[in-house]
């Protein structure tokens, strides 16, 4: 058993971008997790914002649920802009 809790770390690398998962840290509390994440994952100026979440609090899709979870969206091509044909004269849209 770990003495400290495992936290997952998400870093926003630049303003305007989403937070991205980068790894985890061990910490006794969330504050400490934030500081450890800062020291570990942003040593080279990689971040402007950090989230930490206790790993146990994350609910994820099972790795082998890919088909029922994600395949149904594969044939919904109308969600993508390239599905729609416009005459060249319309220009960029």
């Amino acid at each position: 058993m770990s003495e400290w809790i495992l936290f997952e770390v998400f870093v926003r690398s630049k303003h305007g971008l989403n937070h991205k998962h980068v790894g985890s840290v061990h910490a006794a509390d969330a504050n400490m997790a934030l500081e450890s994440a800062r020291d570990l994952y942003t040593r080279r100026n990689e971040g402007v914002s950090i989230w930490v979440v206790p790993s146990a609090q994350i609910t994820a899709t099972a790795g082998d649920e890919k088909e029922p979870f994600f395949d149904p969206s594969q044939d919904k091509v109308y969600r993508h802009a390239s599905f729609y044909e416009l005459p060249d004269e319309v220009g960029h849209m």
Partner: peptide, 8 residues
């Protein structure tokens, strides 16, 4: 006392 503290 912890790896996290090494970094800090």
């Amino acid at each position: 006392p912890a790896l996290e503290e090494e970094m800090a």
